[in-house]
Design a protein around this nucleic acid. Structure first.
Lengths: 195, 195
DNA sequence: CTTTTTTCTGAACACTTGTTCAGTTAACCT
DNA sequence: AGGTTAACTGAACAAGTGTTCAGAAAAAAG
């Protein structure tokens, strides 16, 4: 056989990325073979190489895509005027955005060690950009007296770790709804910031 | 060849576990072969099977060992009398203990997906025991009025996530010493608890 | 229609994987 | 000393790895 009926790169491409994302998140990059990804999409392994030069690049592009999506989404978010408003916006945004893309979040954090050095550095840059966005909010709040924080750099890391932790336990339909979770965490973040 | 000069299971056993721990943490369970572990210890792959029935069990025993160590160490810790003292003790303990065993912490969190269901459940139990230890402290503090927390269960998860996050950035010899980090985090945890 | 381009198959490549085991040697015991 | 046990080798097994590529069929273009 050869080209199959109805095949189209605009459809196959995203399906490959979706399958890879899901499988990498669920079983790990190293544990998932190209044949497995292909089978999930209904292809032979060779066909994947029309869409990625190699497995490593497929992983990296998923991770980079997620990080640039994250940064872009935060850019267009309604942030509010005061540092306190912006901290609240950040808290709610981070929880919502990350829960919506649990697989990508998991991969971007978990598979860093499987990136070659150049790709690793690129991803670290993006991560730091995001951390700096929060750090700036905290520093602004310290400057204008609305926050009481000793070390805004550490605090930004602490807050992000705390918020990302939601992904490990939250399940839709559980004890708490998303807005409730957002409110509880905002309470904690506000206290932590001394506001 | 066969048995090598000076070989002794009391020495080889721990060396295998150390090598496996380090390699699993650095490159991931699925990415590390038995031959690689063996080579690190100076053995052939077959020799590993005198020490573990299979690769999966080796991973699990490392993870389980770490969790029981963690629980045992917390048991023997000086915890203090009041909920506030105990929360402070927990904070300092968690940071110190986890930084001392970064590899084991990383694995116990990262490789859960590589466990078969029974092993997974066992490890979840241990993790929950630890979370409950903190939750109890928080609940006690709410009961006697020393803490202002809405949801002690969520708060315990948030605090643990926040504290464990230290492992991702702390490096000995960096800007902050361990006691400084402990103090900064205790500040944040105390604020978060409303104490 | 015919030609070109896009998309995919199926086989092949060289290599690695976890695991088993008969055989061999060092260490220990009496 | 000799016998027993503990520790390890080296080869083998069947299965799976990422990747390449000639060829074939569907889709698009002319």
């Amino acid at each position: 056989m050869a080209r199959t009926a109805g095949s189209h790169s605009d459809i196959t491409g995203p399906r490959i990325r979706d399958a890879a994302l899901r499988l990498f998140a669920r079983e790990g990059y190293a544990a998932v073979s190209m044949r497995r990804i292909a089978a999930d999409v209904g292809l032979q392994a060779g066909a994947l190489y029309n869409y990625t030069p190699d497995k490593q690049t497929l992983l990296f592009s998923l991770m980079e895509g997620h990080m640039t999506d994250l940064l872009a989404a935060w850019e267009t978010e309604d942030k509010g005027a005061t540092p306190c408003d912006r901290l609240r916006a950040f808290t709610q945004f981070h929880i919502r955005f990350n829960l919506d893309r649990a697989d990508a979040v998991f991969i971007s954090y978990m598979e860093l060690r499987n990136l070659d050095p150049a790709n690793f550095r690129r991803l670290e840059e993006l991560r730091r950009d995001y951390e700096r966005a929060l750090e700036t909010i905290l520093s602004d709040g310290i400057a204008d007296g609305s926050f009481a924080i000793r070390d805004p750099k550490i605090a930004s890391l602490a807050v992000i770790a705390m918020l990302t932790g939601v992904n490990t336990w939250y399940r839709a339909g559980g004890r708490l709804s998303l807005p409730q979770v957002q409110e509880i965490y905002w309470d904690m973040v506000r206290s932590l910031a001394g506001a």
